[in-house]
Nucleic acid binder design. Structure first.
Lengths: 153, 153
DNA sequence: AGAGGGTAATGAGTTATGCTAACGAACATG
DNA sequence: CATGTTCGTTAGCATAACTCATTACCCTCT
């Protein structure tokens, strides 16, 4: 079964890693389904939220860049950006060097909404916290940046 | 922006937790989108895969139980189970004690498919491994069971 | 300069996958 | 045995992604 021996020192732990990925995949899928319902703003889809988060980190980006980062096809991103613009959460400006492209930036309104969103998430977090002990939380804090890296890889 | 003040007492932990949850949410959403594309069997949706995984762990379950575990409404589970049955991956039997309910069990074919799926995931895992160091993998291994617990909470 | 190939964003139409509402059959309780 | 409850299902609908095709623009090569 485990004939695939990577260069990296996975070694004996290959089976354990496979199990971990298995658990990870299942948990991520189910968690994402729950997060969908837990959305802080009813009028914003999860991907729209994610785009705003990306913009908050990057400052600005073109629709194409956003599509690649969110692993969505360009037409979908067009729609998403249009929605966000209609809601006054992002601004579209012409690209300085390339007139084919556009530059998407978040508005002050979006920033305020993200702040509000963070507050609401804290409430949800507190509720969940009752079911986890300190070690488990520590594990999540440590893993969070790794998961982000994984999502980008 | 980055208000990282390590030694500040109470509020700081809360802020760290909020950041972690923030990162977690974003990463989970994007990862789930990637996993959708990474499906090992083209003809199976992510939720269908997840149901098979649950069945592999539990042995058997009623549609209602499955719906609760997957955080899906009963009608959705009806459709998913019907799909799986049509593909010969599960078997539906009458409940021994309650004739309203049904018992869903996985077939040998499903078991073989899951094994195949595990092999393919190992390949994906190896590819991803090149982007993570040993510490990061350790973090994921530790967090995987916690994420599973979180998904169930 | 102009032609041709490549890339960005978008428009239209389709598909996938979840939901709610309403229903019939089987149980449980007075 | 009458009544309310639970389980699975059917029907209809909403959302959000996708693919394919189109338009506008950039860039290189002759």
């Amino acid at each position: 079964m485990l004939t695939n021996m990577p260069e990296l020192s996975l070694g004996d732990d290959a089976a354990a890693d496979a199990d971990a990925v298995n658990a990870l995949r299942s948990a991520v899928m189910r968690l994402s389904r729950r997060l969908k319902h837990q959305r802080v703003d009813e009028s914003l889809s999860p991907t729209e939220m994610s785009v705003l988060g990306t913009l908050a980190r990057c400052g600005h980006a073109t629709p194409g860049e956003l599509a690649r980062k969110e692993h969505v096809q360009p037409p979908s991103m067009t729609r998403i950006v249009a929605m966000l613009e209609a809601k006054g959460l992002v601004r579209l400006e012409p690209h300085p060097d390339d007139r084919r492209q556009k530059v998407v930036t978040q508005t002050e309104q979006a920033e305020a909404m993200l702040e509000e969103s963070r507050r609401k998430r804290n409430a949800w977090l507190s509720e969940l916290a009752s079911g986890l002990d300190e070690d488990e939380w520590a594990a999540l804090r440590t893993a969070a940046p790794v998961l982000e890296k994984l999502a980008q890889l």
